[in-house]
């Protein structure tokens, strides 16, 4: 028979492993809370009229290279615009011009939304902690349903126009 001390120690270790697993499942896998992790980098805010299905922790990229993450998504209370906070890694890029353009794109046909930054032309002023990319220099997400309905509406109106000359159906 094994020493009781060893038995108790291993059982205690098993219990701790179980509790740690539960914690990992709760925090890391089901995302019960995200406040332990702070994304590195300086925070920049961008306003969009529609963010589609952009999620927290989505990529922020410049020309396809990941430079940061989305940290927070909210709603501007007076203008009802979507506000996206992103953390940009200063080790990757530290001199983004102030007139940088942000657009929400989709990776592939079924893919996730991500933010693509297109650097502007200012050579003296750079984006820093807390700066805002205004609505004017952002592109919203393209929603497939809206595209389709626009296309169908266009079809219908052209049909109507062509119908109008002889459109007297009893």
């Amino acid at each position: 028979m094994m020493k009781m001390r060893t038995v108790e120690i291993t059982v205690g270790a098993l219990m701790i492993a179980g509790i740690l697993s539960l914690l990992m499942l709760a925090l890391q896998v089901s995302g019960l809370s995200n406040f332990f992790r702070e994304e590195p980098g300086y925070k920049v805010k961008a306003e969009f009229s529609n963010i589609g299905s952009l999620k927290v922790r989505a990529k922020v990229s410049i020309g396809g290279v990941v430079v940061g993450r989305v940290t927070e998504i909210g709603l501007e209370s007076d203008t009802f615009n979507a506000v996206v906070w992103m953390a940009i890694d200063p080790k990757r890029v530290n001199n983004l011009p102030i007139d940088t353009h942000a657009s929400i794109l989709t990776a592939g046909l079924l893919g996730d939304n991500y933010i693509s930054l297109t650097p502007g032309f200012s050579e003296t002023q750079f984006l820093k902690e807390g700066d805002i990319i205004p609505l004017g220099s952002t592109d919203s997400a393209v929603i497939l349903e809206q595209l389709i309905s626009k296309f169908l509406a266009g079809q219908a109106s052209t049909n109507n126009k062509s119908d109008q000359p002889g459109g007297e159906h009893p």
Partner: peptide, 20 residues
């Protein structure tokens, strides 16, 4: 696979009460 997308998709899909 992108690290952030891996965990972000997992966290948005897994619900603590319903799944875990």
């Amino acid at each position: 696979v992108d690290n952030g997308a891996f965990w972000a998709n997992m966290q948005s899909a897994v619900d603590f009460h319903a799944d875990v």
